[in-house]
Design a protein around this nucleic acid. Structure first.
Lengths: 145, 145
DNA sequence: TGTTAATAGTTGATTTTGTAACTAACAACC
DNA sequence: GGTTGTTAGTTACAAAATCAACTATTAACA
């Protein structure tokens, strides 16, 4: 018979991952929220454009796995606030290329600095081995499907 | 000058953790949603009561770090559906002890089996070292504050 | 061509969450 | 014992996420 009474919620990976993800997002969330009034979806879109450059909403969706309605709304809000602009493709008028404005790049660079500092801080609390294994395993899990 | 252009979103811990957490929650989420119409907050409360036994909403809050309004609503829904019952403390009438009903325990046992099987499957895709390091590090990160 | 299917992105209705203010009960202390 | 402060839990309202249906455009192909 199976032993069930020793099940520990704190060892159940989906639960544990969620706790760690929430806790580790908190401090950074405070920054993009307070400084730019952004939501999580919005800084994600901002970062995708900042890092990978001009791309469509579809592209962002494929890279981030965010649902297209989330992206659509995040893009709309970022455009409203002049963090990005949209240009229709001449050949296929369903496509819109998104690109950061000067304002958007400034915000991106600012948040990038914060992100790097924060990531360094998190990394510093782990050993070299822990850092390596952690990231490698997380990437594996993220791709699981 | 700081090198910024090599920043990789896929290495930024809060982002990476979130992706892994979401992906790893998905399959399990499907089960408690489809079988019992539960939300994440609800299976969490169910599991707390299933594992640790009779306790108050406050206790659940301290263990899970969920906000008390989430817990309040999850408890209300679980009570409505007869998964748990509430008993007021005689001495301190602000306190309510929560306990799984027979139906609740049945659901718990069922989901526990699913959770264990799923966790085993996830663990099986990692080496012993990866499993150990991962859980240890996640616990560390979850406590960070 | 004309018809049907597919794709990029948006909108609307509903559900869920977050924040703050609230009620009810107890505790502390003069 | 009355005032003030705390605590457990709920509720109300605003913000955000979800899901399905929608528009506009392009592709496929008979």
């Amino acid at each position: 018979m199976m032993e069930k009474d020793d099940f520990d919620l704190q060892n159940f990976l989906p639960y544990l991952l969620n706790q760690a993800a929430e806790e580790s997002s908190l401090a950074f969330q405070q920054v993009y929220k307070d400084r730019y009034g952004m939501l999580r979806t919005e800084w994600r879109v901002l970062f995708h454009l900042g890092i990978y450059g001009r791309m469509t909403a579809k592209d962002i969706g494929q890279r981030s796995k965010m649902h297209k309605t989330k992206i659509s709304r995040a893009v709309a809000r970022l455009a409203e606030r002049r963090f990005l602009n949209r240009q229709q493709d001449d050949k296929d008028r369903r496509l819109e290329y998104l690109e950061l404005t000067h304002l958007g790049r400034t915000a991106y660079r600012d948040l990038l600095t914060v992100a790097q500092t924060y990531d360094d801080k998190l990394s510093a609390s782990l050993t070299t081995e822990e850092n390596e294994v952690l990231r490698q395993v997380l990437r594996k899990l993220a791709k699981m499907g």
